[in-house]
């Protein structure tokens, strides 16, 4: 059984039809990379999957729960789906360790000391154990993003969503975040990543999904996508990415 089933979802903002009949499954342990031009609905798709932006039509299942059904307990669902944001979105008034412990204490109702213990373990996972006492403004972008990943991981999610996690970072900081993501993938985490880091896509993705105009134009394993794109649009988009980000390693 797939971990997530996305069935024919559509979403509009006013007259702007941002997602137009998206269907795909996410198998447990899969790593999917979503690419596509700006404004194509990639972020909106991720935000549908954790119901931050509920689709107008279509259905999404997480295991055997239809999360798009009315009266679904979204608080329960969202704990199982971690999200990592382009601009980190750390809680700016809280130290790194508080950021990670907050959900454990307030949502999972762990007592304070257990929550902080677990928060520290998760900071360790992303190599941020020495910076727990710092506020977001005292951390570099790469460090903030790793805390963002730890905050999501601490909730023990079944699935992690990454929305361009490295695109706001200086080039020399991208590596440390990709390394954490790569490690997660190797440990078997199910991941959906919107990213244009093709090196990462090639080495860890099972499938690359090319989106344009609210549709999935092509979805295939990286080797096939890169060597033999079926769609003309995919071909020209990949060509552009290579020009922008350099030939992927």
């Amino acid at each position: 059984m797939p971990l997530v089933r996305i069935e024919n979802i559509s979403k509009s903002f006013g007259k702007n039809r941002v997602l137009d009949g998206i269907t795909f499954d996410i198998e447990p342990g899969a790593v999917k990379v979503i690419i596509g031009p700006s404004g194509t609905g990639k972020s909106t798709l991720l935000r549908c999957i954790n119901m931050l932006a509920p689709p107008d039509s279509g259905k999404i299942w997480l295991q055997d729960t239809e999360i798009t059904a009315p009266h679904t307990d979204l608080i329960k669902i969202r704990q199982k789906i971690g999200m990592v944001f382009q601009h980190f979105a750390l809680f700016k008034h809280l130290r790194a360790v508080d950021n990670v412990a907050l959900g454990l204490h307030r949502v999972k109702k762990m007592n304070r000391s257990d929550a902080y213990e677990k928060a520290k373990q998760n900071l360790q996972k992303v190599g941020m154990q020495d910076h727990g006492d710092k506020y977001p403004a005292q951390l570099s972008g790469g460090q903030q993003q790793r805390v963002g990943i730890a905050r999501a991981l601490a909730m023990d999610p079944l699935l992690m969503l990454f929305d361009e996690p490295t695109s706001a970072l200086d080039p020399e900081l991208i590596g440390e975040v990709l390394m954490v993501m790569q490690k997660l993938a190797l440990e078997g985490m199910t991941m959906v990543c919107v990213t244009h880091e093709m090196g990462f896509a090639k080495s860890v993705a099972n499938e690359i999904i090319f989106m344009e105009g609210g549709h999935i134009l092509e979805a295939s394993p990286p080797a096939e996508m890169f060597n033999n794109p079926r769609n003309e649009r995919t071909r020209s988009f990949l060509h552009k990415i290579n020009e922008l980000y350099g030939e992927s390693k």
């Binding site: 931050l52 969202r78 971690g82 979105a89 700016k92």
Partner: peptide, 18 residues
Amino acid sequence: ISSEQMEAAYSIGLSKWQ
């Protein structure tokens, strides 16, 4: 305060009032 703060709060399972 940017709307991302609220989204991040929702994304870890906090309720609106929390």
